[in-house]
Design a protein around this nucleic acid. Structure first.
Length: 810
DNA sequence: GAGTTTGAAACT
DNA sequence: CAGTTTCAAACTC
């Protein structure tokens, strides 16, 4: 009865598996499908008791991947026997095996049948509910050792004889089909069988295997679910579990266990590590896969195995549940490792996969070491990126606002001399993301949507790039996650060193109460956060009113006070934009610096700090800004400047890149100046607006999303919006230049910025349009809305009117 | 970690 | 608008 069903299910599953596998391969990591499967399996192992596995099994099977199924089957084969209806399970298994074996490569085939069978059988054994719960537990618990242990027991009791029988069959199949693996696998099976035969405990071990496997699968599933691309982890998990079981079993048969481990690991590895492998198994000749898997498995197994043994799972659990539990318990490590691997995977994903094999071993070791801490995080880590991480990470560290934004980029640029446009872009992206998060986190409300969208975009874009930042952020977060501020300075230094300084903006204000532009946080439009070591800080949500008022005052004096100091035209981050073409350096400090002693070669110089070259607006003396001297700029118009000599110097330092960029930038700036200038004001305003979301000042908080997007777009589009500064000088251009140009950019979205030229009040203060509203509105027409909505600066207030603004924008 | 330097921000 | 003071970051030791 059951068997036919199971068989059917199993076969279909297998078929499905293939298709799913392809899907996975094509689209994502195969792991996902596996997870469900694991669930089912876990159910099986765990749930022995309750319900017919059938229900669960199908689902699980469907979800599961071929690889998993296969493996599971192999390892699990006994389970079916154990399972309530050993008959069914066995029969189905036998059928499946027989059938599959021919089809699939020896090992794979073997595994496949087993897996499919297990899936089917397992469910039958256990109640779906239990199974579900168990899996959950496992997932959450990282393998819920407990659950595993119990189920295994139940299974053991029931299936002893059957299990034994099945193993033998399996062994036969394996032998026939696969060679080494088969042997190893067989050895395992045999071992299990022996153990079972010898003692009920042995059975338990066999069950343990299954359980372990199931657990592993579960783990794998989790991993997969968690990390689409974390195939490695699963493998690790499997390895661990198996290792654990092996350890118990393995004391006797280390090699066999190792082989098994390798086998099993390979599965996980193949699955997790590389989709290719996943596919490969089927397409590829088994040996190839096996070798790869083996290699990986070996690496992993070595690390994991040792760890597992260390755990003592093996030592204790030779036979019993305890072993199982231990092995399961060992999972944590495995999980940790998983997490590590996941991380590695992730990173690798982003960075390079090639390391996988070689690194895996390393990773495994390293992971194991780190695992403790990270384990819990692992799961989180993966999910975190999308959700939590962003929020958490972003929040703490990044205190990026618009200003920050600029600064961040600056920082990056500055620190990263090597920064190519690419990095900057990345950095920018990161900064942006961080910004969002920051805004949300620090400020109060963030618009998840905006953030999410941003994050998504970033994520999508970043994979690779993010690594840098993410890693940095992650590290910072790690530090900051809990916001252990420790010494802000130190953190800063660290961050700075990393180039992440931006990530965390902290202030150390003692007298300004963080209500003046002296305060970086306040200037950035962000509330001070724990990391800040400020004294008598009023820049907190609690004092929102005060903050808003103060801002208003400051804005009244200088509408652009909260605008980003540095505006970069080319932000890949925004990418929306377009002008990325333009030299990355297109950015400029809105006001310009006034350096006299630092030669614009130190962070005292805001331009340098921002990683941008000095511009016409700068009144610096002896400018040697490596990012670009104001001289360079001069061409357009007036230059303050001094013809400078030193361009060569710049070249020396950074190398041609910067120089070129700078030069280009300057040129671009000149070209754009007209365009940008008009725009810039709007941008600045817009940026603030972006921050505003958080701000709650009386003015309408703009819809962050709308604003942000628009803002971003504007920036990107404008690209060089940066230059608010140029205004003063550029104003001339603007005047001369037909507004049309600006409109192009602006027109894209915002209409006419041209007006901006208006008034560049003071060179010093770029406050171009002092009246943000008065002037800007017209100029920024496109963005006027924003301006309106965004008073001048990032208000901490949540966006209420955003809708209106958005509409306006549109 | 303390002290100095620097330049922006704020004030007159 | 210019000059001065205040402030906090950046930097040095």
């Amino acid at each position: 009865m059951d068997t036919p069903e199971r068989n059917q299910i199993g076969t279909p599953i297998l078929k499905f598996e293939d298709s799913p596998v392809f899907h996975y391969i094509n689209s994502l990591s195969p792991i996902k499908p596996v997870k469900p499967i694991h669930m089912a399996q876990t159910f099986n192992s765990l749930t022995f008791a309750t319900l017919p596995s059938v229900f669960t099994s199908p689902h699980a099977i469907l979800h599961k991947e071929c690889s998993f199924l296969r493996r599971h089957h192999l390892s699990d084969l006994p389970k079916p026997d154990f399972s309530d209806n050993g008959n069914e399970g066995n029969t189905s298994i036998g059928v499946l095996d027989s059938v599959q074996l021919p089809d699939c490569p020896a090992q794979q085939k073997i595994f496949d049948p087993g897996s499919s069978i297990r899936e089917v059988t397992a469910p039958s054994h256990e109640s779906p509910n239990l199974a579900i719960e168990l899996p959950r537990n496992l997932k959450y618990d990282c393998g819920s050792p407990d659950s595993n242990s119990t189920p295994s027991h139940g299974i053991k009791m029931e299936s002893l004889p059957e299990i034994i029988a099945t193993p033998a069959s399996l062994v036969h199949f394996v032998q026939e089909v696969s060679e080494e693996r088969q042997h190893s696998f067989e050895s395992k099976l045999e071992i299990q069988g022996i153990c079972q035969v010898d003692e009920s405990k042995d059975e338990g071990t066999g069950c343990d295997w299954e359980n372990l496997i199931s657990d592993a699968t579960d783990l794998l599933i989790f991993d997969s679910s968690i990390n689409t691309g974390a195939p490695k982890e699963p493998s690790l998990e499997l390895v661990h579990h198996e290792t654990g079981s092996f350890a118990s079993l393995g004391s006797k048969l280390p090699q066999g266990s190792t082989d098994d481990l390798q086998k099993t690991q390979p599965m996980g590895l193949a699955d997790s590590c590389e989709e290719h492998e996943m596919e490969d198994p089927e397409s590829k000749p088994e040996p190839v896969r096996e070798q790869k898997e083996m290699d990986k498995a070996l690496l992993l197994s070595s690390s994991s195995f040792s760890s597992d043994q260390m755990n003592g799972g093996p030592s204790e659990g030779m036979d019993e549940k305890a072993e199982k539990i231990i092995s399961v318990g060992g999972k944590p490590d495995s999980q940790h490792q998983r997490g590590m691997r996941r991380r590695c995977l992730v990173f690798e994903m982003a960075g390079a996969q090639k390391k996988n094999l070689g690194d895996d071993s390393k990773i495994g070791s390293s992971v194991s070491s780190h695992s403790d801490v990270k384990v819990s995080d692992d799961k989180q880590l993966v999910p975190i990126k999308p959700g939590n991480s962003s929020s958490r990470c972003m929040l703490p560290g990044i205190g990026l606002h618009l200003n920050t934004f600029a600064t961040t980029s600056k920082d990056c640029g500055v620190k990263d001399e090597t920064l190519a446009s690419g990095k900057q872009l990345i950095s920018m992206r990161s900064s942006i993301t961080s910004f969002h998060s920051v805004a949300c986190g620090q400020i109060t409300l963030t618009k998840s949507l905006a953030l999410n969208s941003m994050d998504r975009e970033i994520d999508s874009v970043d994979n690779g790039s993010l690594d840098m930042q993410d890693a940095s952020q992650a590290s910072t977060f790690g530090d900051n996650e809990e916001f252990n501020p420790s010494s802000p300075k130190k953190k800063r230094h660290k961050l700075e060193n990393v180039g992440e300084r931006e990530a965390c903006k902290r202030c150390n204000c003692k007298k300004s109460k963080c209500l003046k532009l002296y305060c970086e946080c306040f200037a950035a439009g962000v509330y001070c956060v724990e990391p800040c070591s400020c004294v008598e800080c009023f820049n907190k949500p609690i004092h929102e009113d005060t903050v808003l008022e103060t801002r208003k005052q400051i804005e009244s004096r200088n509408p652009l006070a909260f605008a980003p100091k540095v505006i970069r035209s080319s932000d890949p981050v925004l990418e929306i934009g377009d002008d990325s073409n333009k030299t990355p350096a297109s950015a400029r400090h809105k006001r310009g610096c006034n350096c006299k002693k630092s030669s614009c070669q130190k962070k005292y110089c805001e331009c340098y700090q921002g990683g941008v070259g000095c511009s016409i607006n700068c009144r610096c003396e002896g400018c040697k800004n490596t990012f670009g001297r104001k001289d360079g700029f001069a061409p357009v118009g007036i230059e303050e400047a001094e013809p400078e000599e030193e361009e060569t110097e710049t070249c020396e330092r950074n190398g041609a890149d910067r120089n070129v960029q700078n030069n280009e930038v300057q040129k671009d700036e000149e070209l754009y100046s007209a365009r940008v200038l008009p725009i810039t004001p709007s941008f600045q305003i817009c940026r603030p607006s972006v921050q505003l979301p958080c701000s709650s000042i009386g003015k309408a908080p703009q819809s962050v999303l709308a604003v942000s997007s628009s803002w971003i777009n504007s920036n990107q589009r404008v690209g060089k919006s940066d230059f608010m500064q140029p205004q003063s000088k550029f104003e001339k251009h603007c005047e001369t230049i037909p507004e049309d140009e600006t409109p192009e950019i602006l027109r894209g979205e915002c209409s006419p910025v041209c007006g901006i030229k208006t008034a560049s009040p003071n060179h010093k203060r770029v406050s171009p349009p002092h009246n943000e509203f008065g002037m800007s509105p017209g100029q920024w027409s496109g963005r006027k809305l924003i301006l309106q909505s965004v008073p001048s600066f990032p208000s901490l207030t949540p966006p209420h009117e955003t809708s209106d603004f958005s509409l306006k924008f549109e």
